[in-house]
Design a binder for these strands. Structure first.
Lengths: 184, 184
DNA sequence: CAAAGCATGTAAGCAGTTACATGATTGT
DNA sequence: ACAATCATGTAACTGCTTACATGCTTTG
């Protein structure tokens, strides 16, 4: 349910519609949710039922009506409680590593192909991340502290990808060395 | 459904019972599943229905009967297909970063407390990982290649934790500097 | 004229978790 | 006496994903 916290956090920055939140989640590498309708709209409806958010309906001429959500005092209280809850350890799900772990049945060439594909998608993800970051993504900067935090969080997300790419490249080279030392 | 792949992988190493697999998943830092009954036993039952595994029931005197699972040819085929499927990008779920992102409402002391708690649990997780790795966890080493892969995978998991701890420590110091430059 | 964007919502399903249920044996 | 280990399985639930449903507008 930590997506609730993330949604409350966004709304503590400024009011949003569900549609805007959806895009925000979908575009962010640090927010590990797909931003699908069910989660966003569902959470907003639940939050409203609990009195944590207010809705302002803005009727438009050419587009469907927007529902702009604002935090209430109760919402602000839940956010603060979540912010102060004890931090949880980071989770890393590196499925490729599990694939590698059981790759004994693959030929050196097949293994090398997997690495090539993995490195390519990592390199691609890094390029995309860098492009977005260079363009400057919308971020709150209500204080020097907040700006620093956001900068460091973005850096960490990129650094994680780059570390993984470096790891894969190093290991791939080692494997090439091995298969040349003991040819089939 | 990637846990299926992981289970098939284990069984390609040697036969296991559900109970043994459960412990294996629960103890491993690289296998991102809790090893709960429902998943392990459920998957094994499904795999058996599909003819991917054989069961040998071993009745024991003092303990409940064990069901030892072995891969069939069909199981080996599914494993190979999974091993050759295109690698997926690593997923990182660093919930603490999201907490930080919206921490604007917290005092410097409250923020510092969060960092202290985070660093402590990271340091703890690292110690546990190192202890287990020093004792040498059970791992297949049917070839030089397999031994190398398992070593590097273990290292990567530890390196991820250590990088996160270093990141947190660095940022915490920067924040301390900030709050002294602009005291409340 | 097709695709993408604006904007909301629901249905069906998969993946994963905690907790429940049973029951003997061994260690503290 | 209490907890942990051995060993299997089921029930109830949360979280999250894909896909469905609608309908107008703008862009290519």
């Amino acid at each position: 349910m930590s997506i609730r916290g993330a949604i409350l956090g966004c709304l503590s920055w400024k009011p949003f519609t569900g549609y805007e939140l959806k895009k925000l989640f979908a575009d962010s590498a640090s927010l590990p949710w797909s931003g699908n309708n069910n989660q966003i709209y569902g959470s907003l409806i639940a939050l409203h039922k609990e009195g944590k958010v207010d809705i302002e309906v803005q009727v438009q001429e050419k587009y469907p009506a927007r529902k702009v959500y604002t935090l209430t005092e109760a919402g602000r209280a839940e956010l603060k409680a979540w912010l102060l809850s004890t931090p949880s350890l980071p989770e890393q799900r590196k499925l490729f590593h599990i694939q590698l772990a059981w790759a004994e049945g693959l030929s050196p060439a097949e293994l090398d192909g997997l690495f090539a594909s993995y490195e390519e998608s990592l390199a691609n993800a890094i390029l995309i991340e860098k492009a977005i970051s260079r363009k400057g993504r919308p971020a709150p900067a209500r204080s020097e502290r907040e700006a620093l935090l956001w900068r460091r969080i973005e850096e960490a997300s990129l650094a994680g990808l780059e570390a993984e790419l470096a790891w894969a490249r190093g290991l791939r080279q080692e494997l090439l060395g091995l298969s040349q030392a003991h040819p089939a």
